[in-house]
Structures are given as structure tokens and as C-alpha cells.
Simulated scan of single mutants.
Amino acid sequence: MSRRSDQPGTFELLAKLPHQIIQLVKLEIANAKREVTAKAKRLGIGAVAVVVALFFVFFALEALVVAAIAGVAVVWPVWLSALVVAVGLLVLAGLAIFAGIMLMKKNVPVPSETLHRFEDDAKAMSEVRINAEDTPAAAGGSELPRVGEKGNWR
């Protein structure tokens, strides 16, 4: 069995392996950065929602103070209207806080997809066996010489 001239040999392939591993690691790091950036943006939107909620809480507290003052100074109509506004602002604040917390919990900036791909790559590399007991001939391929035998090692 002779080697075709257009196919690289074993040593050529082994020489390319470190470069390919480095390229794989660089690509996975780039994917992780991209994934973390996207999740951080969503986390920022959730944080803005919480800030908006705090804005509403601030004015709700002011409205409660105004309601208490109006309740003491005047009978029903003024303080009741101020109390209704305060309750409305508190409801809006509660909704904004709930939405912000849900967005932040849902989008924790961990590059989970990249981690899964990296685990798969590591598993695939650990399954590579050199001079394994099962030769390619047993699996349906061509017979390779064993260590110490003469043959085409490419």
C-alpha cells in the first residue's frame, strides 16, 4: 500500500495539531466573550428596570408624605387622591422590580454554550487512542502496523 502524494503524513498532521488546538482555544475564548457580552447587555436592561422601579418608589414615598399632610389638613378628597396616586406608583414599582429581577435571574452572564462545547472538545480529545488494541482493520478500515513492525507509518 503506497501513500498518495496529496495526503499529509502522520508527522505532518502531528505538527499541525498544536496550531489547531491553539486556534480552537482562541475561537472558544472569542465565543465566550461574545456570549458574556450578550448576557451582560440583558443584565443591564434588568438593572435599568430596577432603577426605574426605585424612581417610582421615591415618588411614591413623596406622595405618601403628601397624602399624610393632606389627610391631616383637609378631610377626604385631597388625601384620598394623593393616597390613590401613591398606591398606583407602588404598583408600578412592584411590577418594574419583578420584571427586572426576572430578567436578571434569567440571564446570568455565564458562557454556558461555550463551556458545553469546550467539554465536548475535551471529551473528544481524551478519546483519541494511540496504538489501540482495536485496529482499523477490525473496525472495517485498513491494517496499520504495530510498534516495532515494518510498514507504512506515513
Rank of each mutant, 00 (worst) to 15 (best):
G88H: 03
L95M: 10
L89T: 03
I21M: 11
E133C: 00
R117S: 07
L92V: 00
A40E: 09
A82H: 04
A63C: 07
A82Y: 05
A49C: 06
A15L: 06
A47R: 14
P109H: 04
E143I: 13
G9S: 08
L43M: 13
A70R: 14
G100W: 01
Q20C: 06
G148C: 07
W76N: 07
K106A: 07
V110K: 15
E119S: 10
T10Y: 12
Q23G: 03
M125Q: 11
I22P: 00
G9N: 10
D120A: 15
K33N: 11
A67H: 05
K105I: 04
E62K: 11
L61V: 09
N31E: 15
P136N: 13
G88P: 04
G88K: 01
S126Q: 13
V36K: 04
P18G: 05
F98C: 04
P136H: 13
L17W: 09
A86K: 04
A96L: 06
V110A: 15
D121H: 15
A137F: 12
K26L: 14
A67W: 03
V84K: 10
L92N: 01
F55R: 03
I97A: 11
V84M: 13
L13H: 03
M104V: 02
T114H: 00
L24S: 11
D6L: 07
E62L: 15
A82K: 05
A70P: 00
I130G: 03
A49E: 06
E127Q: 14
S142F: 13
A132D: 14
F59C: 03
G94D: 02
E35D: 05
L64F: 14
F56V: 01
T114Y: 01
A32K: 02
F58G: 07
E149L: 03
A30E: 14
A68Y: 13
L95Y: 08
A32I: 11
I130K: 09
R154G: 13
A139V: 09
A122Y: 10
A15N: 08
V36N: 02
A70I: 03
P18Y: 03
V36R: 01
P136A: 09
V75P: 12
R129G: 00
I69K: 05
R4S: 11
V72N: 09
G9I: 04
V91G: 09
E28T: 08
G71N: 12
E28H: 08
A86W: 05
A53R: 02
V85P: 00
V66I: 15
E149D: 12
R42V: 00
E35L: 02
M104N: 05
K105P: 00
R129V: 07
V25L: 06
M104R: 01
V147Y: 12
E119G: 05
A93M: 07
D121E: 12
E127V: 01
G141I: 10
L61K: 07
V48L: 12
L95F: 09
T135C: 09
P145V: 09
H116L: 10
F59K: 07
L103M: 14
L144C: 12
V75I: 11
V75N: 13
S126G: 01
K123N: 13
S2Y: 06
S81A: 14
V91C: 08
H19E: 14
V50F: 03
A96E: 02
A60Q: 04
F59T: 06
G151R: 05
